[in-house]
Design a protein around this nucleic acid. Sequence first.
RNA 1: GCGGAUAUGGUGAAGUGGUAUCAUAGGAGGUUUCCAACCUUUUGCCGGGGGUUCGACUCCCCCUAUCCGCACCA
Length: 556
Amino acid sequence: MADAEEGRLERLTGMLKRRGIILPAFEIHGGAKGLYDFGPVGGRLRNKVNQAWLNHWISMGNIVELSCPTITPYAVLEASGHVGEFSDFMTNCNSCEEASRADTILEPHHPNPDSLTKSDLQQLLSDINPQCPACGASDWSPIVAQNLMFNTTIGAGKSGRPGFLRPETAQGMFTSFSSLYRHNRERLPFGAVQVGKGYRNEISPRQGMIRLREFNMAELEYFIDPEVNPEHDFSPWSSIQMNLLSETDGEITMSITDAVAKGIIRHPTVGLFMAKTFDFLTNIGIDSSKLRFRQHQSDEMAHYASDCWDVEILGSYGWVECVGIAHRGCYDLEAHEKATGKTLRARREFAQPKIVEIDGWTTDGATAGPAFRALAGAVKKAVEQLSSNCEFPTQVTLENGESVTVDLTHVKRVQRTETISGEWYIPHVVEPAFGIDRIIWHLLDHAYDESGKDGEEYVTLRLSESIAPVDYCVFPLFEKDGMGKLAKEIHRSLCSKFGTVSIYDASGSIGRRYARADEIGVPICITVDHQSLQDNTVTLRDRDSGKQSRISISEL
RNA sequence: GCGGAUAUGGUGAAGUGGUAUCAUAGGAGGUUUCCAACCUUUUGCCGGGGGUUCGACUCCCCCUAUCCGCACCA
């Protein structure tokens, strides 16, 4: 990176701190790695970005907002695969306090200890009781899962259950599937969104806002029927050329519309969310020339995913992944189904009901029960597999390999016609996942303009009006002669409007006040001057053009 | 986690074994009829903990944080 660029990064970081936008957290106690504050200006900025994001998706009409806990029971993240995929099992030597990976110290005693569950690993550790590689003792503390998730205990003492701070917001939306399904009148497609905190105990957070231990994320889970070919209207994006980095075609410039038509984007719904993500990011002020979609390589994707595109944004740290849009198949709902035994499915009605002739056998509980006792259940399963022309008595083989003789007194003929009107299936999910902090970083990076006027050093933060943290600054040209009083009245009246933030500033020269406002990206400055006292008008000064216009106070 | 560098007002920097200088910013007052002007005045700093020393911001050790490589990044 060029030296000039590095200097810019330092000046930008300094400005963000000085102006109360983004600051290292807990700094008076020495700070904490990977944790940042959004300050008096940044807090509002973050909130507006979150709101813009929520509104963007909820306006689709079939997407609802959820808010799930950040504290998550162990079982939930075990089902999702995070415990297994995301952890190392650690144990401490009780003699020398040295921490070791349980699978590593058991390697000589098991072909693949990495594949064991926690309890199996604990069992093996207790059985073998290997020597500590550091001190030679054989005294190990119980195995604990240690991974990128922050673990905690839900409840106190012996009744406490293990849990984690969530590493993503998605799982709460999967576990709420039944409620979502009912709310949406059992009709797909529908989606759920959630903005909130996620936590990952990164080994080494870096690059300021880019890798955090506690971060703001925003995820959308969009549930679809895999057998329905969606007909999305891509016409709004047909003439917008996007930068695509395709797995097969490399770097190309093409509209989303064409990329879906050509199959480069493998699923139309993934394409739709890519297009809508592009709209969102450019609407809030990301420079579209510094935005690209990068398709995951097949070996880079999770095994269950069929297509995944990252949105990468170019900023002071190079190209950074800020959004991931993944087709996750039925992986997540299926995983929670398996773990809980609950049904997480949607119903699909057939165009024509299927008529099924059932002709076979089942057991007669009154006779088979006493006859087979504990085996009766298995016998019933086996009998129901028999063909309709079976003759009794007959030998059936049970699940456990045992063979029993079943005669006619144990069974009943089943003959009926069933009409099956539909079937239950596990919906597929398309998941756009946004790193809000990274997006905010790039908004600031792209908006930060030091070009100034006449070559002087002058900073303007050219934030989009939709996310600017402060909407107005109100200045009296001078505080005397009643200008201060009138300006304060205007300021209070603006603040009382829902969702509007105004700053009153009477300190320093007018030029200095404009400069302060420009540095935090205030789009409009309102100045009360002598004429205001005569005719109740004020000047509006536009941040980006510097142009002034005069309007009546009542029109504000 | 490994290697290297760094840590001084809000920000950016200078400096010293005897408590600190500069620029800028902030507050108050004055001046000023619209883009960091000027005058007066004022506020505020040696990351934390140990050690050496009569005395440590300065030297040594540990910790924390920041930056740069490497490793890690579902």
